[in-house]
Simulated scan of single mutants.
Amino acid sequence: MTVDDHPVFRGGVGAMLDTQGDMQLVAEASTGREAVDLFKVHRPQITLMDLRLPDISGLHALELIRQDFPDARVIVLTTYKGDAQALGALKAGACGYLLKSMLCTHMLDTIRAVHAGQRRIPPEIASEIAEHAGYDALTLREIEVLRCVAAGNANKMIADQLSIKEETVKGHVKNVLSKLGANDRTHAVTIAIRRGFLELH
């Protein structure tokens, strides 16, 4: 099953699968909720799931599917190389992780490997995860504060928006800089986007 909100992309993946004698596309979903519903009906052996979907995220859809079907084999598709996204997907139970730019060269091999019970992560993402393995992950609150920083807000405005004290905001910013190894707020935002903690909309 393919899960992606772009029909052209789903069509391209379907066309590649059609050329393979040992693969068959049983369902296509354009949203996360549709993916959860279609999974229950078709029980695909492999699901290719985009992380960015219009309703719920691919990560949430993956979690919902695996609640009912713990053996579900899901390969996450993304345009992001960041380790935070990859780690989140792997913790949620993804068996594979593919960058959309690699589909032509690695998709079929990855599907076969995951079907055979292996896990597949591209080397550049694996090295990104390894590089940051010693660092503490950002908390949800720290990510919220960083999102406000990225929007250009000063500490006082962030404190008002999140209904916390300005001192607390300063503490969170300090923790974020330390965890990301950033020199200043702008540097922290740049790192967070590269590693997938923040998304650019």
Results as ranks from 00 to 15, higher is better:
Asp109Gly: 15
Gly93His: 04
Ala84Trp: 06
Asp50Phe: 11
Gln45Val: 10
Cys95Asn: 10
Gly88Tyr: 00
Asp50Leu: 09
Arg73Val: 12
Arg73Ala: 14
His115Thr: 10
Leu48Gln: 04
Ser101Trp: 00
Met107Glu: 13
Arg112Asn: 04
Pro54Asn: 00
Gly93Leu: 07
Val76Asp: 08
Glu63Val: 05
Leu87Ala: 15
Ala116Met: 12
Ala113Met: 10
Leu98Gly: 04
Glu63Ala: 05
Leu99Phe: 09
Ala116Trp: 05
Leu98His: 07
Ala94Lys: 01
His115Asp: 14
Ala92Val: 08
Lys81Pro: 00
Glu63Ile: 06
Ala86Pro: 01
Leu99Tyr: 02
Thr110Lys: 11
Ala113Glu: 14
Leu99Thr: 13
Cys95Tyr: 14
Lys91Cys: 01
His60Thr: 14
Arg52Glu: 15
Ile46Val: 15
Leu53Tyr: 05
Leu103Tyr: 09
Pro54Thr: 05
Tyr97Phe: 08
Arg112Ala: 04
Met102Asn: 14
Leu64Phe: 05
Asp71Trp: 10
Gly58Arg: 01
Ile46Arg: 07
Met102Thr: 15
Met49Ser: 02
Gln67Ile: 11
Ala94Ile: 04
Ile46Trp: 05
Tyr97Asn: 01
Gln85His: 14
Ala113Lys: 13
Ile75Glu: 09
Leu99Cys: 07
Arg66Gly: 08
Lys100Trp: 06
Tyr97Pro: 03
Cys95Lys: 13
Ala113Asn: 11
Val76Gly: 10
Gly88Trp: 00
Leu62Phe: 02
Asp71Phe: 07
Ser101Ile: 06
Ile111Gln: 09
Asp71Gly: 04
Ile46Lys: 00
Arg112Gln: 08
Ala61Ser: 04
Cys104Asp: 15
Met102Pro: 03
Thr47Ser: 06
Leu98Tyr: 10
Leu108Lys: 15
Lys100Ser: 03
Leu48Ala: 08
Phe69Asn: 12
Thr105Ala: 13
Gly93Thr: 11
Asp83Gln: 13
Asp55Pro: 10
Asp50Glu: 14
Cys95Gly: 15
Ala72Ser: 07
Leu90Phe: 02
Thr110Trp: 09
Ser57Gly: 08
Gly58Asp: 02
Leu77Cys: 10
Ser57Tyr: 05
Ala116Tyr: 08
Gln45Thr: 14
Ala86Glu: 00
Ala92Asp: 08
Val114Asn: 12
Leu51Ser: 10
Met107Gly: 12
Ala94Leu: 02
Leu62Asp: 03
Ala116Glu: 06
Leu77Pro: 10
Leu103Glu: 03
Gly82Val: 03
Ile111Cys: 02
Leu51Phe: 15
Leu98Gln: 05
Thr105Trp: 05
Leu77Asp: 03
Leu53Ile: 03
Leu77Ile: 05
Thr79Glu: 10
Leu62Thr: 06
Thr78Leu: 07
Leu64Pro: 08
Leu87Asp: 07
Leu90Gly: 04
Gln67Ser: 07
Gly96Arg: 09
Pro54Cys: 01
Asp83Phe: 11
Thr78Arg: 02
His60Ser: 13
Asp109Phe: 14
Gly96Ser: 05
Gln67Ala: 11
Lys91Ser: 04
Thr78Ile: 09
Gly96Thr: 04
Cys104Gly: 15
Asp71Thr: 11
Leu51His: 14
